[in-house]
Design a protein around this nucleic acid. Structure first.
Length: 550
RNA sequence: GCGCCAGUAGCUCAGUUGGAUAGAGCAACAGCCUUCUAAGCUGUGGGUCGGGGGUUCGAUUCCCUCCUGGCGCGCCA
């Protein structure tokens, strides 16, 4: 049992003796101020109402009844309106380090997910252009969320959905075709809604080179197919540069060829939630909380095709049918209007899909700043900064961290100058440096970290304030991973790493590990190894490397 | 007009799901460098938590309302 569990059990026992109503679940928190102890509970305050007594009296009684024979408590204080503050023995806190080290690369993992399957869809960019910074944020977020869920015991599948069947694709083909015509000297404009980036011209040139018999792209389906293949290749390279890989690339076109779209329409009609109006087929999404009904199939006058909405529903039906009873979609907040209607569609189809399926993680926009100026120009894309531009310029680790350091709900300013800087102003650098410094101790001391287990070492000497603060942070890591996974918020890991790195640097500067009395060195090596493990595990969750030297 | 998100120190942002005197980094000011990385360290100042109501022992956190900014509101995706 760890400290928290021991204190919790003691509190539950005491509260029961006072006649507290079940279930008793005493909150135990790390106080903001170290002067308020190592653990604190407001249990007495929460019991004030049911017991109809004053919180401080309850606190007194609780403390009197605590069975703490071997809980590692040094002393207890009652403070403020009725907080009970626990001050632990330094040796007891440090005593948890050997177990941390034994867990090593598994430290921070949980079995909460019980191997259940979860599908995480992210990026899902149309194959009509390179990945821009918004996709980059999404790639970082999605991959880190996937990683967090893996760490908490879920069976995770990363999925990329290609909208390769809609009007956007037709526009891409027409745009490339127009460029081909221009290259052969004809004055043809890029069609309305078409794509203007330099990459369109590059594709046209490659097409012409590989199709000497059709240098003008007269056969549109060939041109389009070629363009889509080229764009997917480009995006793959972007993702590769970023270090993200997917288990499944799901093609929208397959929903048509596999009959999933037709099946879904039939199911919706059968379920009785559809009607025709002015020649179009509507789904009554208002029955499921939407503010207006949505068109599934356009009227003949508008082409008679399905809107994007229907394949979207069909796609999520396949997720459910493929055995993912939990699905998370990471998208830009500009798509938030689709959330209600997709969920409505899944309820309407009447397949017993859980309400609230799928879950959404929406993120706000990204602004790239350089030299105090917003950056919009990219040679490759013509109009925006691409993921590969960023990775080329600042490196994968920095890009990943910067995309993850803010919660998705906040708009993100990506400061290229800061991300490039090799100084401790740069948070990625600061965190990696903490890891490298600790690694340096082992290197200089010629000590194999694996040989440091903490067993048979007197850890009671780790009683300096900087040591106790660092140890507590390290011990809080597993809880933090659980909370970050539960809330789907990787930025918590990023913030935690920055704070823990700060504690490492503080400790490192104030206290030496090598060339100290033997028992001090031995104990501090244990702390060094524990800190190294936590930093590395946290960075690993975020997909960032943990260098041994810099 | 309606919906979603945000508003916290001069700047960039945290804030453990309702707790104690609201925190960190940068910037400013003062002092420090013979040690495992000075690519640093220590200290100080800095706040009507956008405004106003409400809920209760207690609110940055929950509810209502207003202000400001971003995004969205199509038989586009």
């Amino acid at each position: 049992m760890n400290q928290r569990e021991r204190l919790r059990d003691a509190l539950v026992g005491a509260a029961r003796q006072l006649g507290a109503p079940e279930p008793i679940d005493p909150p135990l928190e790390r106080p903001r101020e170290t002067s308020h102890g190592d653990w604190s509970t407001n249990l007495a305050m929460t019991l004030a109402r049911p017991l109809k007594r004053k919180p401080r009296e309850i606190a007194d009684d609780l403390v009197g009844k605590l069975a703490l024979s071997d809980a590692g408590v040094d002393r207890i204080e009652i403070a403020g309106p009725g907080f009970i503050n626990f001050y632990m023995r330094a040796a007891d806190t440090a005593g948890a380090l050997p177990a941390l080290i034994a867990a090593d690369a598994l430290y921070g993992r949980h079995a909460i997910g019980e191997k259940r399957r979860v599908n995480i869809e992210f990026v899902s960019a149309n194959p009509t252009g390179p990945l821009h910074v918004g996709h980059g944020r999404q790639a970082g977020l999605g991959d880190a969320i996937a990683s967090l869920l893996e760490w908490t015991g879920w069976d995770v599948a990363r999925e990329f959905y290609y909208n390769d069947a809609g009007a956007q694709i037709a526009n891409l083909g027409l745009s490339v075709q127009a460029r081909l015509a221009q290259m052969s000297g004809r004055d043809v404009a890029i069609p309305e809604g078409g794509y203007h980036g330099d990459y369109v011209g590059e594709i046209a040139e490659r097409y012409a080179a590989e199709h000497p018999n059709d240098r003008e792209g007269s056969h549109l389906p060939d041109v389009t197919r070629f363009a889509v293949r080229a764009m997917r290749k480009e995006q793959d390279l972007d993702l590769q540069a970023f270090g993200v890989s997917f288990d499944t690339y799901f093609l929208e076109s397959s929903l048509y060829t596999d009959g999933k779209v037709d099946e879904t329409v039939a199911a919706l009609v059968r379920a009785g939630h559809t009607y025709e109006h002015e020649g179009a087929l509507f789904l009554r999404t208002t029955d499921f909380g939407d503010d207006k009904d949505r068109v599934m199939r356009k009227s003949a006058g508008k082409g008679g095709e399905f809107t994007y909405f229907l394949p979207d529903v069909a796609y999520h039906v396949t997720k459910w049918q493929r055995g993912f009873h939990r699905a998370i979609n990471v998208q830009g907040a500009d798509h938030h209007s689709t959330v209600t209607r997709v969920r409505a569609g899944l309820q309407a189809v009447g397949m017993g899909v859980t309400p609230g399926y799928p879950e959404y993680v929406l993120h706000q926009m990204v602004t790239v700043m350089r030299g105090g100026q917003e950056m919009k120009i990219s040679k490759r894309a013509g109009s925006y900064v691409t993921v590969r531009d960023l990775v080329d310029e600042v490196g994968r680790d920095a890009v990943r961290y910067f995309f993850l350091m803010r919660k998705g709900d906040s708009q993100l300013i990506f400061d290229v100058d800061l991300a490039r800087s090799q100084s401790e102003d740069n948070p990625v650098y600061y965190i990696q440096m903490a890891h490298a410094r600790i690694s340096g101790i082992f290197r200089v001391g010629e000590i194999d970290p694996v040989s440091v287990t903490g067993i048979d070492v007197d850890l009671g000497t780790l009683n300096e304030p900087e040591e106790q603060e660092l140890i507590k942070a390290l011990l809080d890591f597993p809880k933090l991973v659980a909370v970050a996974a539960e809330s789907l918020e990787p930025h918590r890991i990023a913030s935690y790493l920055l704070e823990t790195a700060r504690l490492v640097h503080l400790w490192y500067h104030k206290h030496h590990v090598l060339n100290e009395p033997d028992e001090i060195t031995r104990a501090r090596l244990v702390l060094a190894r524990a800190a190294r493990i936590v930093l590395r595990n946290g960075l690993t969750i975020l997909g960032i490397s943990a260098p041994d030297r810099m």
